[in-house]
Amino acid sequence: MDRRSPITSGRRYAWLPALALAAVAVAGCSSSGGGSTAASAPPPSAGTTASSPAATVPTATTAPSVTAPTATATATATPTAPAGNGKRPADACTLLTSPQVVAAVGTAGPFTGTHPSPVDGKAVWGCTWGSRQSYAHIRESSPSSLATLKANPELTATPVPGIGKEAYLIQRKNGTHPSVYFVAEDGLVYEVEVVKDRGPNDDVNAPAEIAAESALALLLSKAV
């Protein structure tokens, strides 16, 4: 039969039952194929559903671990707060700039501060700017330590007026290894030390070190 030949109206209606059967057959095949598609559909959906809780669980688990150290760090930092009038900064190394240390020590910088090592497991409020050879240093001491130094027969304690509530130049009997101790307005005691050159001939620098210590002690007594 030539498919290009005209189709009469009678033959057109005669084809409808055949077309209907073909449609049913196609629908059956589609239904059968759809079952296969439906069976394969759940794994992606199930995979997607399973991945959502997996993504949520790490988020919920990670959040407390991030928050806990922050809270601990804050609680640990609290004891370093000033015990007196609250004027003293928590970080002693913020008290002096590198140019100020250069002027006091007389050695080219830049100088960055380092904190003193803990004593008996406790942090010590203080800072050292410089190197092992030349440095400026401040640290919190105690009234009992100052009293012991003043009573030491191998040392001399000379009052230094105009610094804090009271201040003393503590040095050996021969005038070497000077340090200035001052009592702040809140009653805390601090030591200020300047070393221009820790070497065999450092003793000749004692007068200059005393002048630098007195100047720094005056400056620092107004900042703590």
Rank of each mutant, 00 (worst) to 15 (best):
K150C: 08
A151M: 11
A104C: 04
T158W: 11
A157E: 03
Q100D: 02
H115E: 11
T158M: 11
A90R: 14
L155H: 10
V105E: 09
W129N: 04
P116T: 02
T97Y: 11
S117N: 12
A108Q: 12
T158L: 14
D120C: 01
S141W: 04
A123R: 11
S98H: 02
V101G: 05
N152Q: 10
L146P: 10
G109I: 04
P118V: 00
A157P: 04
A157G: 05
P143T: 04
P143E: 03
V102T: 14
E140Y: 09
V102K: 15
A90I: 10
V102E: 15
A147C: 08
P116G: 01
L149N: 11
S142Y: 10
W125I: 05
L146A: 09
G126F: 07
A151K: 14
I138P: 14
P143S: 06
T107K: 15
I138S: 05
A147R: 09
A157V: 00
P110R: 05
Q133W: 10
S134Q: 10
A92S: 02
P153A: 06
A103F: 03
P159R: 02
S141R: 03
V105W: 07
K150M: 05
A151S: 15
A151Q: 15
Q100S: 06
T158C: 12
A90H: 08
T148V: 13
E154M: 12
R132Q: 15
S134K: 09
T94H: 03
W125A: 09
T128Q: 14
R139N: 14
A108F: 11
D120W: 05
G113T: 00
T156L: 12
A147E: 13
D91V: 00
P99H: 07
C127K: 07
A136E: 14
A104L: 00
G109K: 02
Y135I: 00
G121K: 07
A104E: 05
A90F: 06
V105Q: 08
V101M: 01
W125F: 07
